[in-house]
Amino acid sequence: MNNEQVKSLLERVRPAPAPFQVVLSGKKSRKVHGLYKPEAREIILHNRNFTTDNELVYTALHEYAHHLQFSTPPLPRSARTHTIRFWSLFHGLLADAERAGLYRSPFDEIEDFRRLTARIKEKVIAPNGSLMKELGRLLAEAQGLCEKHHASYTDYLDRVLALPKPGADAAVKSHLMDLDPRLGYENMKLVARVRDPETRDKAQQALLNGESHDSVKEMAFVRPEPEEDSVEALQAERKRLQQTIKKLEKRLELVNERLAALDQ
């Protein structure tokens, strides 16, 4: 594949919101397979790292997700680019590319992966979810006993079971909400946090349909931000900056006090 072929493939997966370029470096890199330069809107792929076009397409989609991330609001506010939104974009691109026949997942195509995935889901993840629901049922019973005998439920969790309360609460919710144990422990914790029943059902179904943890997290919890230059966005940014400045001023005051004490 050449530069234009890779670019055309990416635009077939999802139209680009802003112009960009693809550059095949013709090099092999031990550090990265590719990178994205936001200022130049340039995707660089070290094509000698790959043995097949399918491998190259995977990395190209990864870097294209960064292009979408930097070209559509909300724009990244820090140097940390591998955010929940990024992973949601990337996983969505992979799914779109698979549906269009432009990328083939090795996890679906290779029989060894398919067998291993089935074993993990059936032997570990689903039983793990069932155990979480059973734990939730027993903890709900413990809550009732604590109320009956005027004992502290939190103390029971802390000193008798040595269980963190957030995890215990998630287990109880998974029991009360009757979540599907096929989700597994971590995904059940995520779904149990969703307050709206309709959104919760959508989140659970999305996970069962194969959507990623981060994609569902963004769908259920990340609120769309206002336009970058809107009054609401600028006021929110000003508030964040004011809070940061206030914290830094307090820290500076403390450091100055300590320096003054050391000088005495």
Results as ranks from 00 to 15, higher is better:
155 D>C: 06
104 R>K: 12
14 R>P: 01
253 E>G: 14
62 H>S: 05
138 L>V: 15
204 Q>K: 06
242 Q>H: 11
25 S>C: 08
203 A>C: 10
74 P>L: 11
260 A>E: 14
96 D>C: 12
42 E>N: 06
22 V>P: 01
137 R>F: 15
124 V>A: 10
137 R>L: 15
114 R>D: 06
131 L>T: 08
18 A>Q: 06
63 E>C: 09
62 H>I: 01
58 Y>D: 07
50 F>Y: 15
111 E>L: 05
190 L>A: 07
142 A>F: 09
160 V>D: 02
264 Q>F: 05
132 M>F: 07
241 L>Y: 10
74 P>E: 05
173 K>S: 10
236 A>P: 01
261 A>K: 11
200 R>E: 10
162 A>N: 10
120 I>L: 00
11 E>M: 13
207 L>Q: 01
167 G>F: 10
224 P>M: 10
108 D>V: 04
99 R>A: 15
180 D>F: 09
161 L>S: 00
5 Q>E: 12
76 P>S: 05
109 E>V: 06
261 A>T: 10
184 G>R: 05
90 F>K: 01
261 A>V: 04
125 I>G: 03
24 L>N: 02
217 K>L: 08
28 K>N: 13
176 L>I: 09
143 Q>M: 15
131 L>N: 08
81 T>Q: 05
151 A>R: 09
171 A>E: 07
186 E>R: 08
252 L>V: 14
220 A>E: 12
75 L>D: 00
43 I>K: 02
111 E>C: 01
99 R>I: 13
1 M>H: 09
87 W>P: 00
146 C>V: 11
219 M>F: 13
220 A>S: 14
205 Q>I: 11
95 A>M: 14
64 Y>T: 09
94 L>K: 04
202 K>W: 04
10 L>T: 03
29 S>Y: 06
18 A>G: 05
212 S>L: 05
8 S>Q: 06
112 D>H: 07
253 E>C: 13
97 A>R: 01
190 L>Q: 07
174 S>I: 09
37 K>E: 13
201 D>G: 01
63 E>T: 02
32 V>W: 04
258 R>K: 15
259 L>S: 11
13 V>G: 03
203 A>T: 08
34 G>R: 01
70 F>A: 08
215 S>D: 01
161 L>Y: 00
69 Q>P: 00
186 E>N: 08
193 R>W: 04
70 F>V: 03
14 R>L: 12
246 K>C: 12
171 A>T: 09
258 R>H: 14
157 L>S: 02
121 K>H: 03
88 S>G: 00
234 L>V: 10
109 E>H: 03
253 E>W: 14
22 V>Y: 04
185 Y>F: 14
210 G>Q: 00
220 A>H: 07
186 E>F: 06
163 L>M: 11
104 R>G: 06
121 K>W: 02
256 N>Y: 07
87 W>R: 00
196 D>Y: 04
30 R>H: 11
259 L>D: 13
45 L>G: 01
217 K>M: 13
143 Q>P: 05
258 R>V: 14
